[in-house]
Design a protein around this nucleic acid. Structure first.
Length: 586
RNA sequence: GGGGACGUGGUGUAGCCUGGCUUAACAUAUUGCCCUGUCAAGGCAGAGAUCGCGGGUUCGAAUCCCGUCGUCCCCGCCA
């Protein structure tokens, strides 16, 4: 028997046809006289009817168990009145079997394939091939494929070229930790798997390819999170002879078309833009979730003479006092507030003050330290109403911002302030070029050292701290889904930036010499952006973890429960590579 | 490197706080039988867990304590 149709594609138009379907037994209902089989393939489920008159196939059908693989020939017919099933797309029809062949049987399953029961993720990943049979993941990977094809279509139609860059490349210990690959033909030397094709795509611009994109796997040997895997897929984009606005415009247009086709959602252009400084001030984050209104307010001016010494001393020591107002939050119990305090502690904050707004004024253990005018200013700035809860945090600006930013998200989730149907895109712009690293006692790039500064000719070691970058991040619903910049295209500027970053000329030449060289041979002005494809898919599919949109993800210890990787290798393999393992794990 | 949550038949959970009334319960899967219109089919019968592992407290531990392993979430880290 040769398959003629997918189960999930059969409908009333097929009535009377003789077809052959192949798939897995999703469930089997044996009524003694008649047997129903729900047969599943990647397109859906079709009900098969085995009638007792066909003794030969009835006997075979009696032995069927879940997840057996079968081929079934039959005639498509209307279901009898009153037996239609509106829960499945094929629910108006059924296939009356005329031939049945078991292609393979299945062992007793480690968990149900049907979706009614959530199974622990470790087990799902160990039997990922079974997990992937489930409807949710089948849908996720079909959608992931469609998103990729729409994005490719968009860039192809806009004259972009997809060009591959190498996976075996040079280690550049700036930034994330590299995965290293030993070289057999060059003992003692190592390739690194790319953290991103950054330098290669810039070189492609120098080669004149003008508009480039690539779906590319990237590797970073850092600790995992719900939205971070050691290998992940990036949509890498680079263009020549363009400005920031050109990149922003084309990416916005791409998203508009993709969301229209995939979700039939109309995304409004242009996307909102916010400066990095405003994002940190109002949202306490460089990736604000703008799906809910609550904003952080600063009271460092209003409270600098406050009698509560924690506040005034924080301000006088160069810190800040900022706060959040939670609508109807006054109903919070003491233990809920304790939970908030514990939560901000994780971000380095030492405590948290609160006040409840009531009809008669403000209630709290710290109200006694406040002048009436101070309380009024706070209420006015928040536009607080009776029943609201005001939370205030004092301390070092970075800690206060991050603590309140994270608390804002926690509260948004906890009290359902977030409209989950929304897709809020946001550009964060005007990033500082560098940040000060306390540990290393030097300036470090906020993005990467190839990012072009605003006013590049006037940047010096003295004013670098206040220099802005021609960089932009794109945020969707509070998740950083991409970032990019205009790059430095002149070697003298690139050298100057390396110098300011305290990367010596020798070190720069050793690490990035090939880029510095290339910049001297007529490098065009260029810039680009990279999008996290896994994160994008997870957001479109409303999944909390990117593991749900990656076919074979790793667990938190960066191992693969399916293949058991990583594993030790043989002494012979190590010898060929000229490698000696200090403490060999058996 | 640090903090937190969880770990009970194949699977998902209850029991744990307040130790004994547990022969560890329920659902599902699984095995056998019955059943001609179900669709998360139904009915009857059966098999299946020394409660992650190790130690301690106790007359007695799934339950309390310590350690350890694993998974997940978060901080650090991720130019």
């Amino acid at each position: 028997m040769k398959r003629s149709d997918y189960c999930g594609c059969i409908g009333e138009a097929d009535i009377g046809k003789v077809i052959v379907v192949c798939g897995w037994v999703h469930s089997c209902r044996n009524h003694g006289g008649v047997i129903f089989i729900d047969l599943r393939d990647r397109e859906g489920i079709l009900q098969i009817v085995i009638q007792p008159e066909r003794k030969d196939i009835f006997k075979i059908a009696e032995s069927l168990r879940n997840e057996c693989v079968v081929a079934i020939e039959g005639i498509v017919q209307n279901r009898p009145k009153g037996t239609l099933n509106f829960n499945v797309s094929t629910g108006a029809v059924e296939l009356v079997a005329t031939n049945l062949e078991i292609l393979n049987i299945s062992s007793c399953l480690p968990f149900n394939i049907s979706n009614y029961v959530e199974v622990c993720e470790e087990l799902r990943l160990k039997y990922r091939y079974l997990d992937l049979r489930r409807t949710r993941l089948q849908k996720n990977f079909v959608t992931r494929h469609k998103i990729a094809q729409e994005i490719r279509k968009f860039f192809n139609e806009n004259d972009f070229l997809e060009i591959e860059t190498p996976f075996l490349t040079k280690s550049t210990p700036e930034g994330a930790r590299d995965f290293l690959v030993p070289s057999r033909l060059n003992h003692g030397n190592f390739f690194a798997l790319p953290q991103s094709p950054q330098i290669f795509k810039q070189i492609l611009m120098i080669s004149g390819f003008d508009k480039y994109y690539q779906f590319v796997r990237c590797f970073r040997d850092e600790d995992l999170r719900a939205d971070r895997q050691p290998e992940f897929t990036q949509i890498d984009i680079e263009m020549s002879f363009i400005t920031e606005e050109d990149i922003i415009t084309i990416v916005e247009k791409m998203f508009m078309e993709v969301f229209k086709v995939i979700l039939n959602v109309n995304i409004k252009l242009p996307f909102e833009k916010i400066s990095y400084a405003d994002a940190m001030l109002n949202y306490g984050s460089d990736k604000p979730d703008t799906r809910f209104e609550i904003k952080i307010k600063d009271f460092s001016e209003e409270l600098k003479n406050n009698k509560f010494s924690i506040f005034s001393s924080a301000i006088n020591n160069g810190g800040v006092v900022r706060g959040l107002c939670i609508p109807k939050g006054a109903a919070c119990s003491r233990s809920e507030i304790d939970e908030f305090i514990k939560f901000v502690n994780e971000y380095g904050a030492n405590g948290l003050s609160w006040m409840k707004v009531t009809d008669t004024g403000v209630e709290s253990n710290i109200v006694k330290y406040f002048k009436l005018a101070e309380l009024n200013e706070i209420i006015l700035k928040f536009n607080a109403k009776s029943g609201d809860l005001i939370i205030l945090l004092a301390g070092e600006e970075k800690i206060v911002a991050q603590g309140l930013g994270a608390l804002r998200i926690k509260i948004g989730k906890k009290y359902n302030f977030i409209d989950k149907s929304k897709f809020n895109f946001l550009w964060v712009v005007d990033f500082p070029l560098v940040k000060w690293s306390k540990e290393e006692n030097k300036w470090q790039s906020l993005h990467h050292p190839f990012t072009a500064p605003e006013n590049e000719d006037f940047v010096t070691k003295e004013n670098i701290g206040s220099a802005k970058a021609k960089a932009y991040d794109i945020i969707l619903n509070g998740v950083e889904i991409g970032g990019g910049s205009i790059r430095i295209h002149k070697s003298n500027i690139q050298k100057k930036i390396f110098d300011i970053l305290n990367i010596s000329n020798e070190s720069a030449v050793e690490k990035f010499g090939f880029l510095l060289d290339a910049l001297t041979y007529g490098a065009p002005p260029h810039g680009g952006l990279a999008l996290g494809f896994d994160r994008l898919c997870a957001l479109i599919l409303k999944e909390d973890s990117i593991r749900e949109v990656i076919a074979f993800p790793k667990v938190q210890k960066a191992t693969d429960p399916l293949s058991n990787a990583p594993t030790p290798v043989t002494d012979k393999q190590l010898k060929e590579l000229g490698i000696c393992v200090a403490a060999k794990v058996v």
